[in-house]
Each structure stands twice: as C-alpha cells, then as structure tokens.
C-alpha cells in the first residue's frame, strides 16, 4: 500500500477545465449545431474530397483492383518460379544440369533429360510440385544459367493439395520474350560481376 501512495505523489495530474457537461436538452442541441457547422469538419474531409475528385474526374486512383491488378513486389520476393529464355535465340536457358533437383530440400523438383538430335542435353520433362515447395530459393540460387528464377506469381492456392507445374507453364512464352526481365534476386550476378572476370591465358 505504501508504494501506491508514493506513486500517486510522484504523478502530477493536471485537471483540464472542459466546462460543464450540457445538462438540458437545449444545451445539448446547441452543442450539436455548433459541432456540425464548424469549419474543422471540412478541413478533415478536404483530403478525402480531393482524392475523390482525383479518382472520379482525373483518373488518379490509389486502389489496386486485385485480382485484376497487383502490387509490384521486390525482386527478392520468392514466388512461383519462372523459366527464362535466352534473349538472343529464344531457346530456354536450362541446360539440364540437375543442380536444382539435387539441392531442393523438399525434394519437389523432378526432371527428365535426354540426348537430342543436335547432340545437346535436352530437357524433356520438368515439374515442380508446389504442394511441397517451400519457396526457399535454393534452386534459383544454385542455377548456373539463371534459367530458373523466382517470379512474381505469389498466389499458390489451388484446387488440389499437390499442384504441379510443368516446364512449359513456367517458361517465358516465346511471343513475350521481349517482356522478359532479367532476374535480380538471389543468385543473380552482382552489379560489379564484370570486374571479377579473369582472362584465360592465351599464348596464340
């Protein structure tokens, strides 16, 4: 109990003079009228009204019409994977090295490769089981070709618990090759990567 008394002594309360509370109905009515027609209300509403006019008549809206519109996300965000293509040839970048399959800690990547007619390693099948994927980003980080990267498709709800994604689904559509953006997230070369390249000694 002693403690409480001391606390109260230390705290300095200030009593504000707010006037008396309206006691009669007339007084109450007066207060309502006073509050309603004071200019502060419109000062508070000014921003709203301004934005309303902007939206309605000037076409400047802050609303994102999800799911028709989406917010831009950081390049480091790890959403559903994208498979990129070479900008020059349009051929997919994946060389089928299998490192993503190996490093995947939830074991959700499966791939099939074969020896194709051009004596190259062809990726004949590639799936990611998004029911298992934990979006750790190791696959994108380990990829030596920046072929598998994390894209911006973050909606992973599906009708099935285990929804698979095929290589073709993730691959940049060939007609949208020009829109393909270089990946800047995990595993991407640093902006000063050029400086670290050493030349092979060539005597001829």
């Amino acid at each position: 109990m002693n403690g409480d008394v001391e606390m109260n002594e230390k705290q300095r309360y200030i009593t504000l003079d707010l006037g008396g509370a309206p006691m009669t109905p007339w007084c109450r009515f007066k207060r309502v009228v006073k509050r309603t027609f004071r200019i502060e209300l419109f000062i508070g509403l000014w921003v709203t009204i301004r934005e309303m006019f902007k939206t309605l008549f000037m076409g400047k809206s802050h609303t994102t019409k999800y799911p028709f519109e989406k917010m831009p996300i950081s390049s480091r965000y790890r959403a559903i994977h994208d498979m990129l293509r070479l900008l020059e040839s349009g051929h997919y970048r994946c060389i089928g090295c299998g490192l993503c399959e190996k490093i995947c800690i939830s074991n959700c990547i499966a791939m099939e490769t074969r020896y194709d007619e051009n004596q190259r390693k062809e990726v004949s099948g590639y799936t990611i089981n998004f029911g298992r994927c934990i979006f750790c980003g190791y696959c994108a980080e380990v990829c030596p070709e920046l072929a598998i990267v994390h894209g911006a498709r973050y909606e992973t709800a599906s009708e099935q618990r285990a929804s698979f994604s095929l290589f073709e689904d993730m691959l940049t559509p060939i007609d949208k090759l020009k829109e393909q953006k270089e990946f800047e997230g995990y595993g991407a070369p640093s902006p000063w990567a050029d400086k670290n390249i050493k030349k092979t000694p060539l005597a001829y």
């Binding site: 089928g96 299998g98 099939e112 490769t113 020896y115």
Partner: peptide
Amino acid sequence: NSEFKYSSNAWE
C-alpha cells in the same frame, strides 16, 4: 554409354 547419355546425373 550412348544409351544412357544425358539421361540422368550420376547422383540421382
């Protein structure tokens, strides 16, 4: 091995 060529990584 011509048949096995490029069909799998050794560690898989």
